[in-house]
Write a protein that binds this DNA or RNA. Structure first.
Lengths: 249, 249
DNA sequence: GACACCATTTGAACGTGTTCAAGAAGGGCT
DNA sequence: AGCCCTTCTTGAACACGTTCAAATGGTGTC
């Protein structure tokens, strides 16, 4: 209950930068530090065990024991076992951004940018493919805070969409201004589709997903290019109108 | 608690035909009957409780008690609580077929057929929207037998695709023969997308889903119509090639 | 009738995620 | 110092899904 606020308040920066700027003294504990430290300890331990044993096989008792705390303590910081995944979620979001940076900085071609970003997204997730399925199961429940469409995931979702906005804005492609406005979100949605495919992908090294990306990017590129074609104008308007209709409830 | 009757007797539309290995020397009557009856009783009771209280809120103990059997007995017939959903799955599949029948029989226009089938699919699911979300959660796990892509769901999946094959075959639309071959499966995939949208749809009476259908059907119709256009031929080939590539692992 | 066999049924027991009432650990105040 | 208040920590207890060795019961065989 109480930890909901703390958890949801600053989820973005916990993976990389610890909130310890300078005063590294042991006595410098302004009330917050002790709790935050425990929180991090539990999260780190949990993610490590998830990686080592898988999600379902890792029990809350094991996490607590390994972290050297009581099981109830974990529930003081995290509402449920599933909420521990949120940490994984945020961390990978950030890793995706970092991995996509080179392509976004150097490449101008739309297709190349999109392709790079999609592959980068898969790259950072590869180590977790085995238990991503279970994790995905949790995310699939609409009422779950882990759902990519949920309010709680809103920051992470916005951050993800921002990457695709970058893909569009930094590209040399010329396209319909109205489409340009909607494209980032549409690309993000496609990305969710790719992730869905990836989760289900049982081929070695998930190479089918790689091929899906390589195949679908030129298609999207072509479609986007064709968007200025006269014959397709009405269809484009139709799509945009539909999106608008659905969005306004 | 000998409630043998009402629950089991009412719905005679059980899709599972009794196994008739005709040609075996054994007597066909008594041995199997008792077990099958219990199995049905448990399934009926479970589905009723799911409808009344929701999936998560219905405990296996409650199902067993209500059915007048021991918990272990339910596990003799069903591997897990999730496996009980498979019954729900099959039943709705059949209901979809039935509900779509009138449209498929009377309508010739492709768009109208597709629209009718999609709305019919939502219609039969409406009563279960509240717990469909939880049920969907189970189906989302790739390893789960409930996954629409799993081997266990193969029959139900084929049956569903068959509906869309009917949509295509019975329509007056003229389209590329290669596309025609793939279209049923593509439409089924779109249907899965619509269901996904529906599960997440929180608008009253899920009216956003209805609008999504009404909006997307003309689009698909248009796209299918355009498929014979010269400019789009290469793109179409590209799509079909991609599907082929992915399919062959 | 007696026995064996196998499908069926039982309910206690196990391990799990989660809750909760109680306490410990400090820091700020008088 | 003494007290209060918030933050943090504890571990037993609960309800659930699931398992399993044992009991039951009907059917075929001798």
């Amino acid at each position: 209950m109480t930890c909901v606020t703390t958890a949801a308040a600053e989820p973005a920066d916990e993976p990389a930068a610890p909130p310890h700027p300078a005063g590294e003294g042991t006595e410098e504990k302004p009330r917050r530090a002790r709790g935050e430290q425990t929180r991090q300890l539990i999260l780190e331990t949990a993610l490590r065990l998830f990686r080592e044993r898988g999600y379902t096989e890792t029990t809350m008792r094991a996490i607590a024991k390994e972290a050297g705390v009581a099981v109830g303590n974990a529930y003081y910081y995290f509402d449920s076992k599933e909420h521990l995944i949120q940490g994984f979620y945020d961390r990978n979001q950030l890793a995706h951004r970092v991995a996509a940076e080179p392509v976004l900085a150097n490449e101008k071609d739309f297709a190349a940018r999109l392709r790079g970003v999609l592959h980068a997204g898969i790259d950072v997730n590869v180590p977790y493919h085995s238990f991503a399925a279970t994790f995905f199961k949790s995310a699939a429940e609409p009422s779950s805070p882990l759902s990519p469409f949920s309010r709680e995931s809103s920051p992470a979702r916005e951050a993800a969409i921002a990457i695709f906005r970058d893909v569009v804005d930094g590209s040399s492609a010329k396209l319909d201004p109205e489409l340009r406005k909607e494209l980032p979100e549409l690309l993000w949605l496609s990305w969710m589709g790719v992730v869905l495919f990836w989760v289900y992908d049982r081929s070695p090294d998930q190479r089918r997903t790689r091929r899906l990306i390589d195949g679908i990017v030129p298609l999207v590129d072509r479609l986007v290019g064709l968007s200025r074609l006269r014959v397709l104008r009405p269809a484009l308007r139709q799509v945009l109108a539909l999106i608008d209709t659905i969005r306004r409830d």
